[in-house]
Simulated scan of single mutants.
Amino acid sequence: MTIPVWPNELDRFERSGWQVQAQDGRQKRSNDAGPPSYRRRFSSIAKGVSLSIVLTRNEKEIFDRFYEQDCAHGAREFWMPDPTTHGWQLLTHEEEGMLVENGVPLLIAERWLCTWGDTPPSESIVGQVRFRKSFNVWVLP
């Protein structure tokens, strides 16, 4: 079975809904005195990402179909472009855009393997014809 891929039409995430936090891979040690100390609990650390996106009616249907059918109501993993780097132009040390031979910009292609967060996506209405979907994903190591 192939892993579903995030729909290309859904690529405009809101900055206000963006939040990333690494999973805590430490385990606190019990000390009789002094400051707390930690040891590693596990070596593979996932990142929790909170996202929100404002959608048209058509985009809402694409999102719902992806979540409900392709991802089995959040039970399946999926590939998602990294919103912080995917599609950005690769730069030189002088911060000039890199180009391939025919003058086309060289773009970064970065994607995440994700699983859905603990709660299903929530939905609210924005204005008269837009919908905001807010959801969490775990970016797997």
Rank of each mutant, 00 (worst) to 15 (best):
D70T: 13
L99V: 15
D70C: 14
Q89A: 13
P4C: 13
Q23D: 09
V49T: 07
R15K: 13
G103P: 00
V137G: 01
K60R: 14
S124I: 08
P35F: 08
R39E: 14
G34W: 08
N8L: 12
I125A: 00
R65G: 10
S50T: 13
R65S: 14
P105S: 04
P7C: 07
W116V: 04
G87M: 02
P120A: 04
S30Q: 15
T56I: 06
W18H: 15
S52Q: 05
G97A: 12
P83T: 13
R65K: 12
V137N: 00
A109H: 15
E61N: 08
R12E: 12
D70E: 15
A33W: 03
Q19C: 07
F131D: 01
Q69P: 00
E68G: 09
F135I: 02
M98P: 06
T119N: 05
I3P: 00
P105M: 03
P105I: 01
M80T: 08
P83R: 11
R130M: 11
E61D: 11
S134M: 10
S50I: 00
P121S: 09
I62G: 03
S124L: 03
R26E: 07
T84Q: 15
Y38H: 00
G74D: 02
G25P: 03
S30I: 15
P121D: 05
E9A: 13
T2S: 09
L55E: 02
T115K: 12
M1G: 14
Q27K: 15
S52T: 08
S16E: 15
R40M: 08
D24P: 06
P141T: 08
E61T: 10
S122T: 15
W6N: 03
G25K: 03
R65I: 11
N136K: 06
Q89T: 15
F63I: 05
S122H: 06
F78T: 00
K28Q: 15
W6S: 04
L106W: 09
H93T: 14
A46Y: 01
L113W: 02
I53M: 06
V129G: 03
S52L: 03
